[in-house]
Amino acid sequence: MWQQLRNRFGLPLTMAIVSLLGIWLIAMVLLPQWQMVDYSFHPSLLPAERGGVKDVWSLTNYATFFNNDIHLAIFFKTIWSSVLVTGLTLIVSYPLAYYLAKVATPGQAALCLLLLIIPFWINEILRTFAWYIIFAFRGPLNELLFALGLIDRPIRFLSGDLGVLVGMVYAYILFMVFPLYNAIESLDANQIRAARDLGAGWGRTHRRIVIPHAKPGIATGCIMTFMLAAGSYAVPALLGSPGSRWFTQIIYNWFFEGGDWNQGAAYAFLLLVLCIVFVTVIMRVFKVGLGDIAK
């Protein structure tokens, strides 16, 4: 790569580009991360005590986590709920992506994509807040269900996990639809027709032809959705209840309410590890490489 750049831009410019890139990577990505990791292995001290005898490497921040049943429970609940969100988003997105890629006329597809994208011009917090209003105890959804005679008393959507799930599926659907759409779009329509012609029903055609072809897209969508869901703060904060707290909220609390940055850093680092593990697992499951996903 160095050689390619040099051939194209000459030595001085290449050195400039590479060093800028290096500085950017080190200053903006590696150093802050390293700082976090470093924090997480030190106790929380008063400014005066920093660098003193008490400032030693320790695992106490991690021990706190593993000894706190509630935090552990929330951590696993966050994993499980994020997986659920990812699964739900996939289930909602797949038919949509298939429709956009293979069924809709170009005009219909453009209209649909526009309708999907417009809400994303609005800030995530405002979008989530819209759901907060819709789900409210005396909000429009309850009114509607009541008017249709489906319920005889309002439901507290915001007290359980339902609001969070719906809010997240909505918030991250595009991150699933686009990779899926791209993957399905590239499938030769004759493949689908050939499968049908050989006698396959729709279920088998999707299972054997469309889904295997779309695998890299599915993997990409799942990874993005999971990471966004696991790292989400606004949606659980607005649409969740104290009973459905997200791990990010605990991290937030350590940083800004507990004032214990070291403890918070340990928790944040755990979340990062979780995401890396998830990416690895998904890549194993779908048998795709990093290259396929980057496409």
Binding site: D188, N190, Q191, R193, A194, A195, I209, H213
Partner: peptide, 12 residues
Amino acid sequence: AMIFQNLALFPL
């Protein structure tokens, strides 16, 4: 049964 112009064998 159809044989397609581009054959449409299943590449995977």
